[in-house]
């Protein structure tokens, strides 16, 4: 082996180590979750961006289907109209905010409700964890603010989970109150299938048909944005930074070569 090859190998191994940490996601246990179905998402890749219409549809699915049990406590209504998101108009966003009731204290010091404002966070569906567990057979519906980043291969996983409900195999003993889903670790999940029929959500004119598959894709898009609302800003800046650095490295390489031309080394 030549020296250079050896050193390259060393670098490859060092990096490979990082890869090993990523690759080793296999869970132990009898009922390993099925590998998520791989989808092509529009926000992937160096130049990937969200589809505004898809995010708006996804928001509607979240609000009408998920929000009954799942909170989104890191998201504010104002986020819905900021650049790089669903980009609802200011007026639409304010109307959405006002359609939610948020907890407040009234002038007599009593707990009360008032319509939301842009600065408010999405209100929680349950007053506290105990109430949430009590309403869901002791299972806690997780907050969805960063759910896509909190699951391995999050977008594909969530899509697969939402569309992956089937009947349990005959030899599988399902606990009462649980549902069979091969994409979930252990294959039994407390959440019943949330998307049950085509047309469950009615989108405005000009949108694709609200099939179960389309609703799942759109809500995944919305949740992905909610997990990483600066994704577009990040990638746009990244492209500029990379171009600058490539140009700078070329200049420095030329400077380095010229400088060292007269030195035997």
């Amino acid at each position: 082996m030549t020296m250079k090859l050896n050193l390259l190998l060393a670098a490859a191994l060092t990096l490979g180590l990082a890869g090993a940490a990523l690759a080793s996601e296999e869970e132990s246990g009898t009922f390993e979750p099925k590998h998520p179905q791989q989808q092509q998402w529009v926000w992937e890749g160096v130049f990937g961006k969200f589809d505004r219409q898809q995010l708006q549809r996804g928001y509607q699915v979240y609000k009408e289907v998920c929000a009954a049990c799942h909170g989104m406590h890191l998201l504010s209504f104002r986020n819905l109209s900021q650049p790089g998101g669903p980009e609802f108009t200011e007026a639409q966003m304010k109307a959405i905010a006002a359609s939610f009731q948020v907890p407040t204290i009234d002038d007599n010091g009593e707990a009360a409700q008032r319509p939301g404002t842009p600065a408010d966070r999405f209100p929680a569906p349950y007053p506290n964890e105990k109430a949430a567990r009590a309403a869901n057979g002791n299972a806690l519906p997780p907050d969805l603010s960063v759910i896509i980043k909190a699951r391995h291969d999050g977008s594909n996983y969530t899509y697969s989970l939402l569309t992956g409900y089937t009947d349990a195999p005959s030899d599988f003993s399902l606990l009462p109150g649980l549902n069979y889903n091969p994409y979930f670790a252990g294959h039994q999940i407390a959440m019943p299938a949330p998307l049950v029929s085509d047309g469950q959500v009615t989108w405005p004119e000009g949108n694709p048909a609200a099939t179960k598959d389309q609703m799942a894709k759109d809500v995944v898009a919305f949740l992905t944005w909610a997990s990483e609302p600066k994704l577009e800003e990040r990638k746009e800046l990244g492209v500029k930074v990379m171009i600058f650095l490539i140009a700078l490295s070329a200049l420095l390489y030329l400077a380095y070569r010229r400088l060292w031309r007269d030195v035997d080394h």
Partner: peptide
């Protein structure tokens, strides 16, 4: 100059992670 050149290449590698695979 040589360290500077290598540094920029390293920052390029670093930037890939920050911006595209954080």
């Amino acid at each position: 100059t040589k360290d500077g050149f290598a540094l920029v290449l390293f920052v390029l590698f670093f930037s890939y992670f920050i911006f595209f695979n954080p």
